[in-house]
C-alpha cells in the first residue's frame, strides 16, 4: 500500500520478523532490499496496486553447516 505519510514509498512487511518496511516507490521487481529490523535480504517478487510482495533470499554461505 502507498504510504500516507510518505507518498514516495510503499509499505510492506518483512516475512521473517514482521517489521513494517518502507519501500521506495521506484523499486523494481527483482530488486534486493534489506529489512531494517532483522537485516534480512529480501527480493521484491511483485508490485501490484502499491502492494509489495517480498520474499526471503535463499543464500548459502561457504561454511553453512550443521
Amino acid at each position: 500500500m502507498t504510504n500516507s505519510t510518505n507518498p514516495n514509498t510503499f509499505k510492506a512487511k518483512c516475512p521473517d520478523c514482521d517489521a513494517e518496511l518502507e519501500i521506495s516507490s521506484d523499486t523494481e521487481v527483482s530488486e534486493i532490499v534489506s529489512c531494517s529490523g532483522c537485516g534480512l535480504e529480501l527480493e521484491v517478487k511483485s508490485i501490484r496496486d502499491g502492494c509489495v510482495d517480498l520474499q526471503e533470499l535463499t543464500i548459502e554461505g561457504e561454511d553453512w553447516g550443521e
Partner: peptide, 24 residues
C-alpha cells in the same frame, strides 16, 4: 525471543553493551 544474529552489531564498551540492527 528472536535474535536475527546476522546483521546485529554488538558493541562492547565501558558503558556495557548494545546490540542493534540499522532499524531496531
Amino acid at each position: 525471543n528472536f535474535i536475527p544474529f546476522r546483521k546485529i552489531a554488538l558493541t562492547i564498551s565501558k558503558e556495557g553493551f548494545t546490540a542493534k540492527t540499522k532499524g531496531k
